[in-house]
Amino acid sequence: MAWNLDFISEEDFKKHVRATIMKYGEKLESYDLKRFNSNLIDPIKLIFDKSVYRTSWEEIVNNEIFRQRDKSNNNDIGYFHQNIFSYFKGCEVPQAGWDVIYRNPDGIQMPDGDIVHTIYVEMKNKHNTMNSASSAKTYIKMQGQILEDDDCACLLVEAIAKKSQNIKWSTKVDGKNVQHRLIRRVSMDQFYAILTGEEDAFYKMCMALPEVINSVVNEEGGVEVPHDTVIDELRKVASLYGDENDELSMAMAVYMLGFNTYMGFGDKIRGELGEDKDGMLKRIYEYVKRLK
């Protein structure tokens, strides 16, 4: 397929995609039971989810592993959205201060008719990730920048905005509604258009992305699919109670992840599941203790 992105070369785009995927590296390490429970699993929720959604133990455990990985991967996608601009003409991605700075000596026309030569950018993955305190702090930062430099605009750029937009950002500071024509809330597609002069620049990037990701993933020595051992280890714990495929045995294995020191999870478990033959309960406690 012919390369049709004028604002970034195919080599640079592929390089950036590769760097983003490499950031997935530590999340692609295999999950064992200790890592799975490192942030303390909620056994009650896990059992509710399994029953309500009518999934198998393997499915619900794999879903939880995916959720844990996905939580970290959001930061990596933020890296993709922000650092791609280091390859755009006139753009800088500073180490601190602002997410992106764009300078154009020929001038940048704003929707209200102003011409500025620098744009300072704060970037968010989603439109709803800022609370009122964070919004006020960011707005005050932008306000201060405009007071310091009257030849600039400040943009809050959202990768996932409610809609395509380039509007004055209205928010609250100290309980008062504030807005300024040079402090704007801009969706990612509109920001790409400002930088490139092409209305469909972001669309073009999105169309090129799947093929480039697949190319990088399939490279020799590329991304390895992890082999997670959580379900096997849970079944091992469950087998100490009885049958590793029995619902109660698996439930007890899950309960022990979070409740092994809770009152009642000793003698009463023994009473429910029978005598503690061969020190079975002790072995379970010792096994789970190693997960902490």
Rank of each mutant, 00 (worst) to 15 (best):
residue 6 D to K: 13
residue 81 H to E: 12
residue 74 N to R: 15
residue 34 K to L: 06
residue 32 D to W: 05
residue 66 F to S: 09
residue 103 R to A: 11
residue 29 E to M: 08
residue 35 R to Y: 00
residue 14 K to H: 09
residue 86 S to Y: 12
residue 35 R to V: 01
residue 89 K to N: 07
residue 61 V to T: 04
residue 71 K to Q: 13
residue 8 I to M: 04
residue 82 Q to F: 03
residue 2 A to T: 12
residue 62 N to D: 14
residue 3 W to Q: 09
residue 95 Q to K: 13
residue 22 M to N: 09
residue 17 V to A: 12
residue 25 G to D: 11
residue 99 D to Q: 01
residue 33 L to F: 01
residue 5 L to N: 03
residue 53 Y to H: 14
residue 89 K to I: 14
residue 20 T to A: 11
residue 103 R to G: 10
residue 13 F to P: 08
residue 22 M to W: 12
residue 7 F to A: 09
residue 65 I to D: 03
residue 102 Y to M: 03
residue 11 E to I: 10
residue 55 T to R: 15
residue 41 I to F: 03
residue 6 D to V: 04
residue 86 S to V: 10
residue 15 K to W: 13
residue 105 P to G: 05
residue 19 A to C: 10
residue 51 S to Q: 15
residue 57 W to Y: 15
residue 79 Y to S: 05
residue 89 K to C: 09
residue 79 Y to P: 06
residue 48 F to M: 14
residue 80 F to D: 02
residue 91 C to F: 01
residue 108 I to Q: 06
residue 70 D to R: 08
residue 80 F to E: 01
residue 95 Q to H: 12
residue 49 D to W: 11
residue 93 V to Q: 00
residue 52 V to D: 15
residue 91 C to H: 03
residue 108 I to M: 01
residue 51 S to A: 15
residue 79 Y to V: 07
residue 101 I to S: 05
residue 61 V to Y: 06
residue 85 F to W: 00
residue 80 F to K: 07
residue 72 S to A: 15
residue 97 G to F: 07
residue 77 I to T: 01
residue 81 H to L: 10
